[in-house]
Nucleic acid binder design. Structure first.
Lengths: 203, 203
DNA sequence: GTATGATTTGACCAAACGGTCAAACACACG
DNA sequence: CGTGTGTTTGACCGTTTGGTCAAATCATAC
């Protein structure tokens, strides 16, 4: 490990390469399935060299995961209580869908972690995530109570948005196997819009 | 390995215990994350004893996975072209939801496999699964074209059902972290029914 | 009870894995 | 150029893992 100075160009480049490679490997194999050697190879480094930049496999995983968590909830944070209810929710759906299309590795990393019981991020889920969801649920409930959108169970509404949008990244192999040549994201935005417009348009 | 005779009572009991334990461990840790020792311990056997009944870790995984695939698509197979369109689809949704509630381990095993690229079941997906989906998509498209349900992209309709229902099993930790004490499945059937009724009821 | 096959296990092996370390190498700066 | 710091690596270590095997134990039919 280098001393406590400003990172050199080499450090910046290599740390970035390692984190990108780790995202590749962890999202495709899970934490236990990934090997340090694999990550090093993908990053174009030797294993000891990689361990010169990060103290352990777990440290790399933590770093990748916390970088992910930082941005993962941005689309929901942006849901504006002052905006038009239906349009706000539709915009949130589209933002989430874009993230699945543009950052599928991040989505799969998250999925891997959750499916296997979220051992490393359970705390964040039941504190930060829960608080954010509670906040936005209150907004949606207010809209619903005011009759500005159809009555809906707000928690399940949010779960449905998560599951529908992330499905195209997390289960991409399955979607592609079923669709064949067709682009999975071709008709998806329109489908989502129709679905939530019909669900939420008041009477 | 015993000779090629009818399985004894001990064989039946132990093979069943192993497969159940394997479902536990594989669904919670993924293939590479699971160890033979773990499975053996959960099954109440020693590792060499377990390997007396199955030749390898991969053989156990294959067996568990193929038993799963056998029944996983039954709810979709049961979609009856002769039934009432909306009620048929709603019934399919409820069957899938029940499977998520009653067989979450199976759902998570499947999710683990797909998220990590489905290396072992890719063939089944692009043959059997695809054929079944194509068949049912045709049914839904016919209903849609006949105006018996609202116009809808049939593939994405099916994907939406998969993702929504399986979400409650695959992402159970997250759902519970957000909902707290509340039973994840309490309001879910009603939410699903409302959603698909609104989406599919012809104008 | 005893013979035969089924079942179980402790001891063991080779490979893979996460991680360490001293030595070699590269590079910037005077 | 040389020297001090940052960087890279081959060799190595202890542990975990999947799997083997011979020997011991158990169940059952005669």
């Amino acid at each position: 490990m280098p001393k406590d100075r400003a990172p050199t160009r080499i450090q910046q480049k290599n740390r970035a390469a390692i984190l990108d490679a780790a995202l590749d490997v962890f999202s495709a194999q899970g934490f236990r399935g990934a090997t340090v050697d694999q990550i090093a190879t993908v990053a174009g480094l030797s294993k000891p060299n990689l361990l010169y930049y990060f103290p352990s496999k777990e440290a790399i995983h933590n770093e990748v995961l916390s970088q992910l968590l930082d941005t993962w909830l941005d689309p929901l944070r942006a849901l504006d209580p002052a905006g038009d209810p239906l349009e706000e929710i539709l915009a949130y759906v589209q933002r989430k869908l874009e993230m699945s299309r543009d950052y599928p590795r991040e989505s799969r990393l998250f999925a891997n972690e959750i499916v296997q019981g979220a051992p490393r991020i359970h705390d964040v889920l039941s504190t930060d995530l829960r608080a954010l969801v509670d906040e936005k649920v209150a907004v949606i409930k207010a809209w619903s109570d005011a009759g500005r959108i159809a009555p809906v169970h707000p928690y399940h509404l949010i779960f449905s948005i998560w599951s529908l949008t992330q499905h195209y990244a997390d289960f991409e192999v399955q979607v592609r196997a079923v669709l064949g040549e067709e682009d999975p994201f071709a008709a998806t935005p329109e489908f989502m819009e129709t679905l939530y417009r019909r669900l939420l348009t008041p009477n």
